[in-house]
């Protein structure tokens, strides 16, 4: 499998007044295309910071971040926006839907910034995605009329609308009960099986078990990097 994400000596420091906080202390990681990765670690381990860097929302202090073949580490703000818009999809813990928009409009949102023409075709695509995540009956509902699980499904549909190379999840089940979490994880695994690369942050072991690979961070360094037993992953699907 070709590498879709390769980070080399990734360092991220935060400057708080005169103090420098070393969050990521020289990470080297490679994620392959079609993989399903769970980033774990205690709070303060740097997993969220890593996800922000991977999501092009933040720039590393030093080191390289190759997304595909391109080093995006030192790109300008506008270029990073472009990368997010074209190659990345986001799923957040708190769903982050816009309350004034309907389900379909929320799904459509990333297309707004792609500079493409919004017409019946793109609309049909958004409707299809919403139907795919099981919201065919609720196309014109607003987020506040939906349950948490339904909102997260809207977010998943939204993350797919630009056909991204990489989907990033920031504790996608963090606000959901166990049953709904399983539903969401099943959906993510389906996506992964259809070829999408997914990287998600979680601190729950049973959620991490859905992933193929688990990377544990501690104090800004990789603590362990394990592959889940394929057999076990298959069993969970059953």
């Amino acid at each position: 499998m070709p590498a879709i994400v390769r980070i080399v000596d990734l360092v991220k420091n935060y400057y708080m007044g005169t103090q420098t906080v070393h969050v990521l202390k020289g990470l080297n990681l490679t994620f392959e295309e079609g993989d399903f990765v769970a980033l774990m670690g205690p709070s303060g381990s740097g997993k969220s910071t890593l996800l922000n860097v991977l999501g092009c929302l933040d720039r590393p202090t030093s080191g390289s971040y190759f997304l595909g073949d391109v080093d995006v580490a030192q790109m300008s703000d506008d270029q990073l926006s472009e990368v997010r818009s074209t190659y990345l999809g986001f799923i957040f813990q708190s769903y982050n839907l816009l309350p004034q928009y309907t389900v379909v409009e929320n799904v459509e949102l990333p297309l707004l910034y792609q500079g493409i023409k919004l017409d019946e075709k793109t609309k049909a695509r958004c409707v299809a995605l919403a139907e795919m995540v099981g919201l065919a009956e609720r196309l014109d509902h607003r987020p506040l009329q939906l349950s948490g699980g339904q909102q997260q499904r809207v977010a998943i549909a939204r993350s797919l609308v630009n056909d991204p190379h990489l989907i990033l999840g920031d504790e996608p089940t963090g606000n959901l009960d166990t049953k709904t979490s399983v539903e969401i994880m099943q959906m993510l695994r389906e996506l992964n099986r259809s070829g999408k690369t997914i990287i998600m942050v979680t601190h729950e072991n049973d959620i991490a078990e859905w992933a193929r690979r688990v990377v544990r961070l501690r104090d800004g360094r990789v603590e362990s990097d394990t592959r889940n037993d394929t057999r076990m992953v298959m069993e969970m699907g059953r």
Partner: peptide, 16 residues
Amino acid sequence: TREIGIRRALGAKRRD
């Protein structure tokens, strides 16, 4: 602010 963050994450440039 949050809406702005969401839009930025989804690909909006500063200009947008």
